[in-house]
Write a protein that binds this DNA or RNA. Structure first.
Length: 855
DNA sequence: TGCCATGTTTTTTTT
DNA sequence: AAACATGGCA
């Protein structure tokens, strides 16, 4: 166990946060206001500017505050200018948050921090400036997972590998994993590379990289990996950045993977004094193994990757770090929940070893949760072994105990939570302060269904990203082809979207042509159009398409990029395609397209837009009306709510069986950290649930309560009865009585019934906002796959009736209307404000008039 | 080329 | 159970 090596505080008096003794006050008087609001530990973390610092910041201890104050401090002390501070976060959200807070703190005084961003966006940025050094052009495309898979599919096909047995997705995952670990094609352990397609894995990885270069593209992993290669092969470039970045700050350090770690380490080294370039020693691209660097040999993501594995000749590197730079990493080993993605908790556990002389500061005062919640969370996480150890404490009241509630099945669970939330609502709690955190996103559905029938406004956080939606990706593909004709992937995506009669056959022949002559698809198309290899019809529409692109490219020279985008979307018939589409989400897609064009305004030009879009474009929360938040535990990290509901604490689901199977003990610990994250999101109330029955892949199965529930300290937990009557009765087993009890209750699930619907209605919901937020869930499909309504509209007649206002609807019979979820239809019956509408796609439904608009 | 039927797979988590 | 993919048919 890691004994907290408590380094003595410096001269900071150990006092209460704000109050402070004489010394503190004196100091406060002399020092900027931002310091006075910090507690001693936080203050130490902010003021220790020289040398490596590791801040172990438990949940709710003011991590972000420390980071932003530290930046403010550096600036106000004149230690560096904004452009000399490298500040990396893990997610765009975090980056935005920091920018925001910094802005508040510094006012307009400092114009934006140019080097504050995610690992990927900063990596990409650096890469663009030196692209030619890694065989790319500065306008390279960033491929997302979708492109990646399609590319790999082509490679598999070329190799004659059955992509049924060896799915491209799987290969993509492997490659991703290798890149996360900083491994180029030649560095992948042969045993591992052989796993795929009978030994062809390594070769495929290599040819994938080659293809990327030809396409002038990089995937997410490359943004870092190629950056590392760049730094290694061009020490002069590295030195330039080492000089530039006087201070390095890293957020969520526990989530860094090996590649990120390597990247950071390169930047954190003191610039090597000798400009004599050792470049010659590292010639080949990634391929050349660089045996001099032991980190390269590090290959196993397993727990074996520990200090001992790395050390040995690591000493040499450590020596290089002997004058460690001013790097400050902030993290919490107890909140490391991205191991599956290559994050190495070891990075944080090993910090002191990697950065000798590091100062370790623990932030243990929690300013978020009440006593019971904090105690429960701490007790739970104490079951983990591999941790640095922190003891969170609070000065808050004990508050309410954490509750654990058993439900018969997942539906009852949803119902119980729904009722609790209505309770809160009645007590005038703000719904924005209520969150439901689930382990896996499929759990959300039941809650959505429930909330829709209750008329509880809710909002799904996370979910499909804006730029992952099919229509956005299509639009982007058009722009990509305009911008760089050689973008084969984009071209292929849109040749036949909207349908132009250019099907697989045509594309295939373009491919053959392109491959034979080693030219991009677009050029191949140009050539083919001149021949009569194609049927007249296909030839004609292909020619039209090419002409259009020529026109757009010409227009790009003169018109603004937003105008261009509008023209492209219009003239290509893409907008038309959706306008003609009758399905329910077509309107939403058109909105998204508008939103896309609008967001382009924020960029200088098309090029700039395209460079950023794939990395930083994510949902911007619209105008927030009061609503319950629904999200996964992962996306809840960093957030906090007064009331947190944690459903699904069952073996197999919450310690996720899959994680257990794949990661064993480490997996269990990660799941436990996830539980810890969940609990610590709560400020005042944390409510846990488990269901005895849950549907998995369509079949009902019986589940048992999560072991995490047993690990909670009895003193801080209260077992409550579910309103349905089933409870977490005794300590053991499931007595028949309980079963029976529940059975009577269960008679109605599966076929959501009238009775319940009516009972709920009687209780009086308000206007239902449930539909507003979420558009059809899993949007992105390949070209042409216009996703029809995926989710069966859950409308039991009458359930959507929110309020009988008595007022007559201002709709008339036969009016043509549009509904967010069901699409177009016409009114067939009117009953007060309740309309019966025959939808073109969804059939006849009864809905409240406020949910439809005139079409 | 486009539609329908059948068969198959799904449920982490994300830059 | 439902959404997806594939393959056969018109």
């Amino acid at each position: 166990m890691t004994e907290p090596n408590h380094l003595p505080h410096r001269d900071v008096p150990d006092h209460q946060p704000v109050a402070g003794g004489i010394a503190a006050r004196a100091r406060a008087a002399a020092s900027p206001s931002y310091l006075s609001r910090l507690n001693p530990e936080q203050r130490e973390a902010v003021e220790t500017l020289d040398g490596p610092v590791l801040v172990l910041a438990g949940a709710g201890t003011g991590k972000t505050r420390v980071l932003t104050c530290r930046i403010a401090h550096i600036l106000s002390q004149g230690r560096a200018r904004p452009g000399e501070i490298l500040s990396v976060t893990f997610t765009n959200k975090a980056a935005r948050e920091m920018k925001h807070r910094l802005g508040e703190m510094l006012g307009q005084a400092v114009e934006g921090m140019p080097w504050l961003g995610t690992f990927h966006s900063i990596g990409g940025r650096i890469l663009r400036m030196h692209a030619e050094m890694v065989q790319l052009k500065s306008n390279f495309t960033v491929l997302d997972t979708d492109d990646q898979v399609r590319l790999l599919k082509q490679l598999l096909q070329a190799e004659g590998i059955d992509d049924k047995r060896w799915p491209a997705r799987m290969l993509a995952g492997l490659i991703d994993g290798w890149k996360n670990r900083g491994l180029g094609p030649s560095q992948v352990p042969s045993g591992e590379a052989a796993v795929f397609a009978n030994g062809k894995g390594g070769k495929l990885y290599a040819s994938y990289q080659e293809r990327l270069k030809i396409l002038n593209a990089a995937d997410f992993g490359d943004l870092l990996l190629e950056n590392i290669r760049l730094f290694r092969e061009h020490p002069d470039v590295l030195r330039q950045y080492q000089h530039r970045f006087k201070f390095i700050l890293v957020d969520e350090y526990q989530d860094t993977n090996v590649a990120q770690y390597l990247w950071l380490r390169l930047l954190a080294q003191a610039p090597s004094p000798s400009p004599t370039s050792p470049r010659a020693s590292v010639p080949s691209p990634l391929v050349g193994e660089t045996p001099s660097d032991p980190i390269d040999s590090l290959q196993d993501g397993s727990p074996g990757l520990d200090a001992s594995h790395r050390s040995g000749d690591d000493e040499k590197n450590v020596a290089k770090l002997s004058a460690p730079r001013n790097i400050c990493c902030v993290g919490d080993d107890d909140q490391s929940i991205y191991g599956w993605r290559g994050a190495e908790v070891d990075n944080i556990l090993r910090f002191e070893h990697d950065f000798p002389g590091a100062k370790v500061i623990r932030l243990e005062r929690n300013y978020r949760s009440t006593g019971h919640i904090l105690a429960a969370a701490s007790h739970l996480i104490a079951h983990n072994e591999g941790r640095l150890g922190k003891t969170l404490r609070t000065e808050d009241v004990d508050g309410e105990k954490v509750t654990v509630t058993g439900a018969w099945d997942s539906e009852e669970e949803a119902r119980a939570i729904g009722e609790e939330i209505e309770d809160l609502q009645r007590r005038k709690e703000n719904l924005n302060q209520v969150a439901i955190l689930v382990r896996a996103s499929f759990q959300m559905r039941e809650f959505e269904d429930r909330f829709v029938t209750l008329g509880l406004p809710y909002r799904v956080i996370g979910g499909p990203r804006f730029y992952e939606r099919a229509e956005i990706r299509d639009a982007l593909a058009y722009l990509r082809v305009v911008n760089s004709p050689a973008d084969d992937l984009a071209f292929e995506r849109i040749v036949n979207v909207p349908k132009r009669g250019l099907g697989d056959a045509t594309v295939q022949m373009l491919h053959d042509h392109a491959r034979k002559r080693r030219i991009p698809l677009f050029e191949a198309a140009r050539a083919v159009v001149e021949t009569d290899e194609l049927k007249p019809k296909a030839r004609g529409s292909l020619r039209d398409l090419l002409t259009s692109f020529d026109r757009w490219r010409a227009q790009a020279e003169v018109a603004s990029h937003t105008e261009l985008a509008e023209a492209v979307l219009d003239e290509s018939g893409y907008t038309d395609m959706w306008q003609k589409d009758r399905s329910a989400d077509a309107a939403g897609r058109l909105d998204n397209l508008k939103e896309l064009v609008r967001s382009m305004e924020e960029f200088e030009n098309l090029q700039g837009f395209l460079e950023h879009i794939s990395l930083v474009m994510d949902r911007d929360g619209g105008a927030e009306e009061e609503a319950v938040s629904l999200m996964t535990l992962h996306s809840a990290k960093g957030l906090e709510f007064d009331n947190v509901f944690l459903p699904g604490w069952e073996e197999g689901l919450f310690p996720s069986q899959r994680t257990l199977d794949e990661q064993g003990r480490a997996g269990l610990e990660e799941e436990r950290r996830l539980a810890h994250v969940g609990l610590t999101r709560a400020r005042r109330r944390a409510k846990l649930y488990f269901a005895t029955n849950r549907r998995i892949h369509g079949t009902w199965s019986t589940t048992i309560p999560s072991r995490f529930l047993d690990e909670l300290p009895a003193h801080n937990v209260e077992i409550t009865e579910s309103k349905g009557g089933s409870g977490w009765g005794g300590a053991s087993g499931y007595g028949p009585s309980r079963f029976d009890n529940v059975e009577s209750f269960g008679s109605s699930y599966g076929t959501p019934g009238w009775q319940r619907a009516q009972a709920n209605r009687a209780r009086g919901g308000r206007q239902n906002h449930g539909f507003e937020e979420r558009q059809t869930s899993y949007g992105s499909r390949d070209a042409g796959g216009f996703s029809k309504q995926k989710r069966t509209p859950l409308v039991i007649e009458g359930e959507l009736i929110a309020k009988s206002t008595g007022t007559t609807s201002d709709f008339n019979l036969k009016d043509r209307v549009f509904h967010q979820k069901f699409g177009y239809g016409h009114v067939v019956k009117i009953d007060g404000n309740k309309l019966t509408i025959a939808f073109e796609k969804a059939g006849e439904k009864k809905v409240v008039d406020s949910f439809v608009e005139r079409a």
